[in-house]
């Protein structure tokens, strides 16, 4: 009974969500091995080897794995799967892309987006955009798991597992990477930031988002948005927090001009402290907010920037 955790990384460093998913893998019991598949990614394997509870790191370094496309990753994992009862990975867009392909090739079920490990075969996961929690048990010999990383703490980086290079499988040639447009930002990444400042439809225009960015920069926070703000074209779609966007659980979440649609709440309601600033006191966001401020954001946000300045931020 052992687990293969497929690492998420950018060929340079391991994602925070992988380090958190390792906790879920350790909780399932048995040996935990990590697969680092990428191109020029030896440093990632060394980092993965430090995750506490990991006993071995498999390194597949080959050009075809550079972007972790589903078809080659699935073929590689299936070639390794014989030894493992569980194949796990963070429920990022990468993991969500390749994991069901792996599960179907292994003829096993996938349990998506787990938020708790009850025992090696029983898990909790949100359904209906987080409005219900399902406890699901499998009795299959193999299972595929994607982990909602924000529900788990990171493992210590105190281990020293061995790294073993493995060879690549043949490339099916079904898919080819053409390019990517990544949003560049000096701010922390949304899903791992300790503080997130998000704007909604109330921001009225993308031109008003620099107001939030100033707050974010004072707090060392990431900037997010509701689906309404993204659909209105205020900000790019990777800003979106919600069931159909990113799921975040920072220490502090500041929702500005966000009404609090179910789909948005599903993406942020596990934040430790939630602040809502909205001029509509009936807005559902206030039902989940620890601190609610009923005010026009165009007055409150500049004032917040000033007040933060006063306390030395």
């Amino acid at each position: 009974m052992s687990t293969l955790l497929i690492a998420e990384h950018n060929n340079q460093s391991l994602s925070e969500s992988t380090i958190k998913s390792a906790t879920a893998a350790v909780q399932m019991g048995g040996d935990v091995h990590v697969l680092v598949a990428g191109a020029g990614c030896a440093a990632v394997a060394d980092e993965a080897a430090k995750m506490a509870g990991v006993s071995k790191v498999l390194l597949a370094d080959d050009a075809q794995y550079e972007k972790q496309l589903a078809e080659p990753i699935a073929d590689l994992v299936v070639s390794l799967a014989g030894d493992y009862a569980t194949i796990a990975t963070p429920a990022s867009t990468n993991g969500k892309n390749f994991m069901p392909r792996i599960a179907a090739l292994l003829d096993c079920s996938q349990i998506s987006d787990i938020t708790a490990v009850i025992d090696a075969n029983t898990f909790e996961r949100p359904i209906y955009a987080g409005n219900a929690i399902q406890t699901v048990r499998t009795s299959e010999a193999k299972k595929a798991i994607t982990v909602r990383a924000t529900a788990f703490a990171a493992v210590e980086m105190s281990g020293s597992a061995a790294v073993e290079a493995i060879s690549a499988t043949a490339n099916s040639g079904l898919s080819e990477f053409i390019g990517e447009e990544l949003t560049k930002s000096d701010r922390p990444e949304l899903t791992s930031a300790k503080i997130v400042v998000s704007g909604g439809r109330g921001m009225q225009s993308g031109d008003n988002f620099p107001m939030l960015e100033k707050i974010a920069d004072k707090l060392g926070a990431a900037v997010g948005a509701s689906r309404a703000a993204v659909d209105a074209g205020f900000v790019p779609n990777d800003y979106q927090v919600g069931q159909t966007g990113k799921v975040v659980a920072p220490d502090l979440y500041i929702a500005v001009g966000i009404s609090g649609a179910i789909q948005h709440l599903a993406g942020m309601k596990d934040s430790k402290v939630i602040v809502a600033i909205n001029k509509d006191e009936e807005a559902p966001i206030f039902q989940v907010a620890d601190y609610g401020l009923v005010a026009d954001l165009f007055n409150a946000v500049p004032e917040l920037e000033e007040e933060l300045g006063k306390i030395g931020l």
Partner: peptide, 10 residues
């Protein structure tokens, strides 16, 4: 649509 932005594949 990927976590960091957009990816194009063939």
């Amino acid at each position: 649509e990927i976590d960091g932005g957009l990816q194009t594949i063939k």
